[in-house]
Nucleic acid binder design. Structure first.
Lengths: 188, 188
DNA sequence: CTAATTATGTCAACATGGCTGACCTATTTA
DNA sequence: TAAATAGGTCAGCCATGTTGACATAATTAG
């Protein structure tokens, strides 16, 4: 293992901008931060191919999923869940309704509301999109065995990563020097 | 608790599209899938305000972070980590170099390579962006105590969610009926 | 009963950050 | 010397986020 970076040797004392410096315990956490990135990267990748068949994107997926899971959801509820603007939601929701995956019914008690429900085809698509994510999550949980808590979390997040990618991520997280400098013998 | 949805009563048998049906164990996993969504939603939210000061977005954050953590990274390595195209990377990388947050040096062994390094200001920004994520992650780990593995993961993901949001997320995950139908007494 | 509030929708314009496809320059390697 | 590799660049497209302004219908408050 080479110590070449200049960053890894200094304890990030230069972080004067916010008055924050990284200590040893903080640096240990960074690996988890990165694992969460990789986990989410691969987790969201699964449904994208299916969505492409319908010319849909992730925004459609999110809407369809939550309407499927929580039938009768109002637009306001969705805005609260997704934390996006009404206009952004309207665009994808309009397409989902036009495509016959979601339908709107007037609220019985309050007729200003448009309660959202998936149609049969909407439910079929929702389940199809959910399936690979459940599979990956299930496997991640199963792979997470016999460990203390931080290790459980680490194991869980790692198992969320695409199988073929794990080697590389592991190498990367092995520390600065894991991925970079592929030919250390050439350095003069 | 009311049973009103029509979806929650049926075990999603209609998922004939992919030949997949959700069983009870699968449905139990869906909550984790949603927790991961909420966790990542709030996790990525933190640095966005800081980035806005510099007219940067998440794409800049990712590049800056990985270059900070793994100094000497090559463009090809970044493409592999981020899983985006060369053109997408080039856009944000160009801005980061122009703004003086990242600098490029020719590879010593192979002079086709442009090794990437953060400047002092680049490191300062990287640390500043990382700090709230470390804080949240640290707290999520700390809050995850005394539990079996699936519960540890659940606890971990839940603790990743913005504090004020947890009540609502908890209510939502309490099952169909948790968030929707706010006035059940009005239904005829 | 009128006025304010609420739920929702819509138009227009803009920014970010993905993508494809084509093409170019150095440099290294076969 | 030719091919492969690392990287850059231009041009255009698409998805999805943003603001701001405004409209309609229904409910609720005074």
């Amino acid at each position: 293992m080479k110590d070449f970076s200049g960053h890894s040797t200094e304890p990030a004392d230069k972080a004067s901008t916010a008055g924050i410096a990284l200590g040893n315990s903080e640096r240990a956490i960074v690996g988890l931060v990165e694992l969460l990135f990789f986990a989410y990267r691969d987790f969201t990748r699964d449904p994208d191919d299916i969505l492409a068949e319908f010319n849909f994107g992730r925004a459609h997926h999110r809407v369809l999923h939550f309407v499927d899971r929580y039938p009768g959801l109002r637009v306001a509820d969705l805005l609260d869940i997704l934390k996006i603007t009404k206009q952004s939601l309207a665009r994808v929701l309009r397409q989902l309704v036009a495509s016959g995956f979601i339908e709107q019914r007037l609220g019985e008690a309050d007729r200003r509301e448009r309660r959202l429900y998936v149609t049969d085809s909407g439910q079929a698509l929702a389940v199809r999109l959910l399936a690979p994510q459940i599979r990956r999550m299930q496997q991640a949980i199963n792979d997470t065995h016999g460990a203390t808590e931080a290790e459980t979390v680490r194991s869980f997040l790692f198992a969320m990563i695409e199988t073929e990618e794990r080697r590389r991520v592991e190498a990367l997280l092995a520390g600065p020097g894991g991925l970079v400098v592929p030919k250390p013998e050439d350095t003069p």
